[in-house]
Design a protein around this nucleic acid. Sequence first.
DNA 1: CGGCGCTACTAAACCGGTTTGAACGCGAAC
DNA 2: GTTCGCGTTCAAACCGGTTTAGTAGCGCCG
Lengths: 343, 343
Amino acid sequence: MTRPERPTIRDVARVAGVSKGAVSFALNGRPGIAEGTRQRILDAARSLGWTPSHQARALSVSRAFAVGLVLARPPELLGADPFFPAFIAGVERTLSERGQALVLQVVPDARAEQDGYRRLAGAGRVDGVFLLDLRVADPRIALLRELGMPAVTIARPDVPSDFPALLVDDRPGITAAVRHLVELGHRRIAHVAGPAHFLHGSVRRRAWEQALTDAGLPASTVVESDFSAAGGAQATRVLLEAGERPTAIVYANDLMAIAGLSVAVEHGIAVPAQLSVTGFDNTELAGYVSPPLTSVRTDPYHWGRSAAEALLALIDGETVDDVAVPAAQLVVRASTAPPPPTV
Amino acid sequence: MTRPERPTIRDVARVAGVSKGAVSFALNGRPGIAEGTRQRILDAARSLGWTPSHQARALSVSRAFAVGLVLARPPELLGADPFFPAFIAGVERTLSERGQALVLQVVPDARAEQDGYRRLAGAGRVDGVFLLDLRVADPRIALLRELGMPAVTIARPDVPSDFPALLVDDRPGITAAVRHLVELGHRRIAHVAGPAHFLHGSVRRRAWEQALTDAGLPASTVVESDFSAAGGAQATRVLLEAGERPTAIVYANDLMAIAGLSVAVEHGIAVPAQLSVTGFDNTELAGYVSPPLTSVRTDPYHWGRSAAEALLALIDGETVDDVAVPAAQLVVRASTAPPPPTV
DNA sequence: CGGCGCTACTAAACCGGTTTGAACGCGAAC
DNA sequence: GTTCGCGTTCAAACCGGTTTAGTAGCGCCG
């Protein structure tokens, strides 16, 4: 377990017969080193198996070569959410191509989240951060501005973020789902929403309302839930046991929709013959439940890549514009059909 | 965007009227500083809002205060796997309590994985690493030993890892599932396995075989799949269209089992009346499909916590024993029942 | 009164890079 | 023949901590 002694640029300098400074210049491709000398230095470095010490470089240029991401989720919920793993994978992919690292922090709630950012910034552990789950008048924005920390937000429409944002617009996906149902002939289209304090919860809900209005339909029932399977099942039960049952339900994510499918089975309601159902996220499972779920496809992996690129550019001092991501697309499967003729 | 100048111990020293060294000693609670002086120093530090520079400390004590985890998975598969998010959350929780960070790296395949570890170690970015998805005669073990890098493996039975291991044993879970089915009266119990080159794939398969033998049953059909919903559906189709159809299927994970459920529906085979089904992982959704899925509960969040604790202890130079995790437990739901009387 | 040992503290080296300022050698220009 | 300018290189400072060697002051003992 004795760690082998890593060679330093001092060793390289000695072998090449030059000074430390010359080595640094040569290795960084700076001008002012004669070509022959440069080669001798590079050869020396290679033969010694030299690799730069991350910590030394970090200290002298005062950069951490890392970016931070604080996740405010109870850990048991993380496993269920298909967004994070894919988003993080995308972020990571871009970062590692550029020699940067991702420093993750998982905290149980939004209060601890602020401390998380403060810790990351205070210790100089990261050069920039991502802001997820943006809220209206989000206190983190002021905090990061005060700390002078570059940030990229994953923002939803209508929320000025004060930082470059990855503009994710869920509305077209929801709109397409509602329109699809309207075209099939549905008129009572309910919604199972995510928590209102999450922007992607409330944006999807408002998009659903707007789509109903646009179709000339009256407002319909909405049940607020929590994006979990348990919550989706419970919300579905409420809707199906109501006086005037909807003929279609637009769910704010696949997990709730899939749970909803089995509640329908439980109530002896056939999907899609008596009830149409749409999800959101287009998780892999969506295509393999019964009936296969009509859903909205998003691409969190590429969001992660884009967000990381924007953040790195921002850290490098470039001016960065908001980045729009491609609109979410409806994937029609067998869980949607015309409403029953009666009713 | 001008980052505020962070105070250094030099500033603290000036304010407190002492030397840098004294400040360092006082802040680290070392003996040799008079109580009054210590207080003066602490007050000065507090009033200046001083926080230690991570990079400076990392350089002087040559520690990275971070541990590494290289994930060799195609990113699109990451979203589906319920293991990683929970495991990582657990790891992270323990790490952040101790001021350590997690450096993640996502690479597309096993070859790139080696380079990933080499990069992390070479740059001195991490003090230790986790080894997941251990394979037989895993080349990473030799690599890490050569690099002198502390590591903790997430190991399966019968694989000597040469490093402290978190011993995860899936066998009791599979055994319990098979025994449960045998007690219900099943005799043709098939298995949909994960890829053989993953240890948790082959271990679960062997446990299933062994459990059949122990119950005095003949070997039964196994279809090797890939842990994905698509693969699970395909495998189920093979089993259900075979000459002598099994009365029960033990799946190596929930995702494949849930996909299998809808293939059964598609074939007009009632679950559990005509076919019993068990999953593995006990994902949240398992309880909310129809019928609710009998599954095996594991606890990757706590595995993450334990693995992180072991790794930190190892890095601190303590001798660390293998850690056994509690046995996986069967959760019986409605997808299992006695086989149909005829047959 | 000199020497010893102890405590409290300072000064300086160190970690491994980057960056700055000055010096050196050499050819061209005056 | 000096001066100037340029390309090349070196020595030293610096980043912000930790750690070591050394010293001043003091009480105690012989």
